[in-house]
Design a protein around this nucleic acid. Structure first.
Lengths: 151, 151
DNA sequence: CACAAAGGAAGAATGATTCTGAATAAAGGT
DNA sequence: ACCTTTATTCAGAATCATTCTTCCTTTGTG
């Protein structure tokens, strides 16, 4: 099992080497930022944040670094209907809540019992389930529901 | 509760009028196709399919018709990381399984007990949950898992 | 049947993401 | 330490899905 108490750089270096990828300053910067926030930034937001710490980095490199991190299991890519993908530095299984008004993503504390998923697998006849994703939708504390008041 | 045993056109007309939208031949064609398939086509696939039945229709109209159907509660929009959004004519609550290899979407038979969701709501402190989405991921019968064989 | 307003066609415009080609910098060997 | 090999980076062009714009057509109403 990988070590969580090592310095972030060491964790990254190890994960990259395990996947035959090189350690670079740009990837380190992206990883540092992503693992330091509990927000779920878009690639562009990562780009803006990282650029203030690394002299020069291109948006394309941020995209590729993020994909590399996802490939190494150090990040997750979250996609929703509204434009950009978002990235999550948390790699332990957890769920998200998405605000229908402001599109922000929040982490949810609880977890779904694994038996429930096992039961659902039975309804897939032939499909080989390897994982799942659960997302709650609604309105965050800053956004009041603006649903039509009609019945 | 709306009627499922009426002709599709009547269902559509009623839903449109309830939302202050007009009934048009293009929307009918899109609705007819979407409710006749258990696939989960992209907007472009709907466009190609509908064009063989309606003399002339533009891609933009298909996009707008699909959004209109979603707004009337007659369809659902599904978004995943791989490019295009997909549309689902089934409006009853159900889950999906997505093949990581071929990106196809399949309906899952079972349903998650609502108590589980209620419990998760407690972990959102302040977030007002109005719905949720559950997606299984894995490999369909046509696609063999191609995961690395290493430990 | 005539009218006003919504809807549609066609293609341009937009925004996110990926690709291209030349230059740079890790890792490993001498 | 230096050199070689080759992945990675940069910068901007290219691509793909989706939306917008302008003008024309159709719908629903009196």
């Amino acid at each position: 099992m990988p070590q969580q108490d090592q310095p972030p750089e060491a964790v990254l270096r190890e994960a990259l080497e395990a996947n035959g990828q090189r350690f670079t300053e740009q990837r380190a910067a992206v990883y540092r930022f992503l693992s330091s926030t509990d927000k779920h930034p878009t690639a562009d937001e990562v780009f803006l944040a990282v650029r203030s710490q690394v002299p020069v980095i291109s948006l394309a490199t941020v995209y590729k670094s993020l994909e590399t991190l996802v490939g190494c299991g150090l990040a997750m890519k979250l996609t929703y209907g509204d434009g950009s993908a978002r990235y999550d530095g948390r790699t332990d299984p957890h769920h998200h809540a998405r605000c229908l008004q402001c599109s922000r993503i929040f982490d949810v504390a609880g977890r779904l019992p694994s038996e429930e998923i096992s039961e659902l697998k039975e309804g897939t006849e032939g499909f080989h389930v390897t994982g799942y994703r659960l997302e709650l939708t609604g309105y965050c504390t800053h956004c009041q529901p603006v649903e039509p008041a009609s019945a």
